[in-house]
Simulated scan of single mutants.
Amino acid sequence: MSALDTFLAALPITGVNVRVGSPGNCGGVMLAFIDIAAASDYQFVDATPPNEDQELADFCVTNVRIGIDDELRAHFGALPPIEVTVNRVSPHPADANESNNQRAGSHAVREALRRAGLADLVP
């Protein structure tokens, strides 16, 4: 069975919560809370609640998505037929940056791979 088949067979994977960075470093802390389900083609859903700084929240979601998409392509060569739902990010003005949000997305996919029994794929 291929890694993709193993991953798809493990779906849905819900409640994937990751945190990257730390309060003590200059890069800040970012969170990503996602669910992954089977779908007919790749779909990305922003289910984050409205935020008082919606522009910053959208920036975070956009960069979390870049991290998710890049990590999926790295493992499967293309975006698989799944629906990724982002339920929460942490749009804090001092911590939100492209790199940390992208790392949060990447780490969320890695955690989903571990849960699917594909820990050998994760660095």
Rank of each mutant, 00 (worst) to 15 (best):
T14Y: 15
R110C: 13
F44N: 13
D58N: 10
Y42L: 02
V29C: 11
Q54P: 03
E83T: 08
V29Y: 09
N97S: 10
D53K: 02
T6I: 08
V64H: 08
L72V: 03
G28W: 01
V18N: 08
G105K: 10
E111T: 01
P93Q: 14
D53N: 11
G27T: 10
G28H: 03
A96E: 05
A119M: 01
N17K: 14
Y42N: 09
I68H: 11
F7Q: 04
R115D: 06
V45A: 06
A96L: 08
H92C: 05
A116T: 07
L121T: 12
S90I: 12
A108G: 09
A32N: 06
A96D: 05
V84Q: 09
V61E: 00
D35P: 10
T14P: 00
G24H: 15
D46V: 07
N97K: 14
T85M: 03
E98R: 15
F76W: 06
H92V: 08
L79M: 05
A74P: 02
E83Q: 14
E111W: 01
I66G: 05
L118R: 11
I34F: 02
V18A: 04
G27P: 10
R65Y: 14
H107P: 12
L8V: 14
R73S: 04
L4T: 01
H107I: 15
N63A: 07
S2A: 00
S40G: 08
E55D: 12
G28S: 08
L11T: 00
G117H: 04
V18G: 02
V45T: 05
G21T: 12
F44W: 11
E71S: 06
P81M: 02
E55Y: 11
D120C: 09
V29L: 02
D53I: 03
G77E: 04
F33K: 12
F76R: 02
